[in-house]
Amino acid sequence: MSYYDIDAILTDAQKVPCTFELTVPGLGFLDGNMDGDMKKDSKVELPIWLGEMLSLSEMMNTDSLVTLSIPSALGPRVFNALKADPRTVDLRALASHFYNLATRLLEMYVEDINKSEEQEMIRVLSETFKARAAVIADQANNVRGTLGEGADFLRGLDENERQLFRAAHDSAKSVRAWVAEGMKKK
């Protein structure tokens, strides 16, 4: 993950639900409460970069300021849908950087995931990515597919998958261009 990677920056800007463990004076503006305090046990959606820093404060031998929980995009409902059929889920509507968000959260300490759930999540994510990649390759090589029945699926691709589609499409296009060039010379 590079400092200048725009996808990494956008991933960090996605929001996760956080629960405050302490009352913080003057922080109410995060919750739309301009001059007030942030009450203990209030739930706020914070961007990952902020939530990560706040939850890390337990390193300094104090209680963690916030605890992170799983965003709805990675909730059990989504994962059940992915297990049932990875192709029909609109990942983009859930999170524009779905896989990045998932891996980012798995790297961090999130309260309500234990080890075995984590393994399960990674397994489902890998299976999903593979199954969808096969469809992406078919669509990228099929010109009509992008306009017809494939349009709905392609709209639901997350940013990683879009790059994959673009790569597959561009390489197929360059081979076609080379063949066409030979024909023209004739």
């Binding site: 896989y99 990045n100 998932a102 891996t103 980012r104 798995l106 790297e107 984590e118 393994q119 990674i122 994510l125 890998s126 990515f129 593979k130 990649a133 990683n160 790059q163 994959l164 790569a167 597959a168």
Partner: peptide, 14 residues
């Protein structure tokens, strides 16, 4: 390459 890279990123989190 893109697929392998994507799978690697997912697996690396673990």
């Amino acid at each position: 390459g893109g697929v392998i890279d994507g799978l690697r990123k997912i697996g690396a989190a673990r």
